[in-house]
Each structure stands twice: as structure tokens, then as C-alpha cells.
Write a protein that binds this DNA or RNA. Structure first.
Lengths: 222, 222
DNA sequence: ACGATTAGTGTACGAATGTACACCAATATA
DNA sequence: TATATTGGTGTACATTCGTACACTAATCGT
């Protein structure tokens, strides 16, 4: 004879708030999933997202006022992802030989690992809702600033005024995002194209770093 | 007594095909106008565009099968605009001093002049319909290639293999597009911010050109 | 001059969307 | 244990959309 609780039902006796967070996460994931299927976030509807999450349309309102608000949470998550990337990059610490190439391949792996998030920022950074655009731009700017700060700490380009250093980091970030965009809409498992793309990426960074070095040296001599 | 034709009516006795081209242009312009009002092209509907053009929804079909097809025509127009830009750049010919800064300011003027078109590619380049994205990427690639060819003709970076030269031009174009995006969503008539942005742009190009020079020199010496 | 072509209109329909309201059942609070 | 909260459901409605069909009137080809 079964116990008081039939055991087959009641799969998760969680506190209500935990359940809420769970379905909220389902909504966020649903949006990402749909984007993974080629839809652009801007074109997603509240009903569509709820449906993908296995919910009735109205349930959406229990978590977000509208799709833009959901998008902002996604941006927030991206911010966390970027911070984690920086933290891992910092670990990679002092330069062995071809550290650049290694960084690049680590980064590209990271992009593929967080595919949907990068897809999201890549397509919404200049795309749809003004609010989202600004939020993403904000995240990217923060990322850039932290990178500049890291450069400072490591004594790289020590002669450059902060503004210039930030500009250089801005170029690096821009290049990183462009590279991410490229890997992402590369047909999957094309190791040849991907290697070529990756090599291109390395060369681009080299150019930026060369240029920055020269800028730095010019200031050193004066 | 008025002549056979009442004269007050009949504003344009044009051949039919010309009239057609004219309303077609109205549709294209309508799409651009709507984008100028903050809408993203992807989010525009056939009805909306027709309405803005002063037409009944069905009239749209006499010119385009769907909005994507209209978008492709817009991309084509952008291609023409870019070609014109290159032609004018070629005229500017041999380098007086601070040619770079001049080029930049000419370019930024050009962007503001063709505001809506640049707004269009900037937001659809990574944004919405796959077809449009590819078409735009194609245009940008062509632009890049022509720029590389111009470099070749002028004997710039003569030591660089074609692939590297194209990569350098790719970086320049990427930087140009990013700068365009920046001017475009700058609040209008902020000469201070714009000047700062423009100066940043110049510095970025300098870095790329420095880096490319170094790459070229390395190959020269070997 | 006359019949064919066609740019643009009018009406209509099914599908999808955002949102409002009433409701339920389980959890939380007292 | 009684009550209030609340995550989720069901129904409903106005709006918008893409598109199909029939129609008109002006232009074109012969």
C-alpha cells in the first residue's frame, strides 16, 4: 500500500518561489531556443515564447510585463557570461608563446559553448528594440572598460592615456564580436572554414596590437 | 472654355511604366521612412509599408512578392550608394597632408547624407531575415574587395598577399560600419560628441594602417 | 479603333497577436 | 486550521496581418 502521497504524482515538492524561478527560467530558455531556430528575438511574440515554454499565454505576465523586459533579463545573463569570460581570461595569465592564438581558440570555444547568448547579442546589438540595444551596448562597454583596466594592471601600453587605451580595447572587442558573429552563422562542423576564420581573427588582433604598440612607442619616445 | 482636357486634373501624363516605377519608389521610400522613425525593417509589415506609401495593401503585390523582396531592392540601392562612395573616394586621389582626417569627415558626411540607407544596413546586417543578411554581407564583401583592389593599384602594402590585404580592408570596412552606426544613433546636432567620435574613428584607422604597415614591412625585409 | 494588359481598389476571411477578466488550486501566512 | 496570496488556466475580444478574389479604369499593342 502506497504512503499517503501517491508518489507517482508530485514530482517536485519545492517551495513556491523556487517553482516560479523555474518556469521563469523556462521562459528565458524558450526565447533562446527560438532564436536558435533562426528566429530573431525582435520578432518573437509573447504567445510564441509562452507556447515554447509549455505555458498558456497569460502565464507570461506573471514573470515579465512584455517581451522587452524578458530581453533585458537575457542581456543581464549575457553580462554575467562576459564577466566569467574575463575572469577565465585573467587566469590564463602570463604569456607563453603564441598566447594570442590560444586566447583566440579559447574564446571561440567559449562562443560556441554559449552559442545562443552570443547569437542574441550579435543580432540585437544593432537590430531591434531601442531599449535592448542600449542595454547591450552598456554591457559591451563595461566589458571593454574592464579589459582596459586589465591592460593597465599588467602594464601593457603603459604610455597610452586612458582614452586611447579604451579605444584600442574597443577595437579588440569589436573584432571579437565580429568573429563571434562569423563563427555562429558558419555551417556547423566545417573545420576548414573555421580554422581559416580563426586564423583571420588572430591576424586582425595582431594588427591592432601592432598598431597600439606603435602608438605607445611614439608616446614613449616623446 | 477649357480645352478637351480639364487641365486641373491629370497632373502627370506619364507612360504607364514610369508611373509604376514611381509608386514602386514610393514603397521603397515608405519603408525607409518608417525605419527612420525608429522601426526596424524586419518588423515592418506589407500593410504598414503600403499604408505609409498611400496605397491599399494589395497594391504592394504589384511590385514585390513580400517584404523581403522589397528589402533586397533596398540592399541593391545600398550597393549603388557604396559604389558611388568608392568612386568619390578614388577622386580624392593622392595624399595631401592629413588625408586620413579628411577622408573620415567626408565619409561621415556621406553617412549622414544617406542616413536611412546606412541605418538600414546597420540594423539588418546581423538582425532579421537570413536572406537580407546574406545580401548585405555580399555587398559589404564587394565593397571590401574593391577597396583592396584600389590599394593594389595605388601600390599600398604591395608586399601583402591578397588574402592579407583583404583582411586589412575588412577591418577598415568593419570600423567604418561601426562608426556609421555610432553617428547614426547619436542625438542629432551634438557637434561635441560627434567630433569626439570622429577623432576616435581617425585613431582607429591609424592603428589599423600602422599595423598593416608593420605586417607589410615584415614581409619586405624577409 | 478595339481588345488585351495591368496598376490600383474594395471586400472578405482565417490566423495570430496582446491583453483583460474571472477562475482554480496549491502554497504561504496568521 | 482558516484565510490570503499567487502561479497558472480558460475564455473572450479587438486589432492586425497576409492573402485571395472580383472589379475598374486607364494605358498599350495591334
Amino acid at each position: 500500500m502506497p504512503p499517503r502521497k501517491p508518489a507517482s504524482k508530485d514530482p517536485e515538492p519545492l517551495p513556491r518561489s523556487a517553482r516560479k524561478d523555474l518556469t521563469r527560467a523556462k521562459l528565458l530558455q524558450a526565447a533562446l531556443t527560438l532564436m536558435g531556430e533562426g528566429r530573431s528575438f525582435t520578432s518573437l511574440g509573447l504567445r510564441e515564447i509562452a507556447r515554447e515554454a509549455g505555458l498558456v499565454p497569460n502565464a507570461f505576465y506573471r514573470h515579465f510585463r512584455n517581451t522587452d523586459e524578458l530581453g533585458l533579463v537575457l542581456v543581464e545573463d549575457v553580462g554575467i557570461t562576459l564577466r566569467r569570460l574575463l575572469r577565465e581570461a585573467r587566469k590564463m595569465d602570463v604569456a607563453p608563446r603564441d598566447m594570442l592564438r590560444r586566447s583566440v581558440s579559447v574564446y571561440l570555444e567559449y562562443v560556441k559553448l554559449n552559442r545562443l547568448q552570443f547569437l542574441f547579442i550579435s543580432s540585437e546589438r544593432s537590430g531591434g528594440s531601442r531599449i535592448l540595444r542600449l542595454a547591450i551596448r552598456n554591457d559591451v562597454t563595461h566589458f571593454t572598460n574592464e579589459m582596459a583596466q586589465d591592460f593597465r594592471i599588467r602594464g601593457l601600453y603603459a604610455q597610452l592615456p586612458t582614452a586611447s587605451l579604451q579605444m584600442v580595447c574597443g577595437m579588440i572587442v569589436m573584432t571579437m564580436l565580429a568573429a563571434a558573429t562569423d563563427v555562429l552563422d558558419l555551417p556547423p562542423d566545417q573545420p576548414l572554414l573555421e580554422a581559416e576564420m580563426s586564423e583571420n581573427f588572430v591576424q586582425q588582433l595582431k594588427i591592432i596590437l601592432f598598431g597600439a604598440t606603435r602608438l605607445n612607442d611614439a608616446l614613449t619616445r616623446s
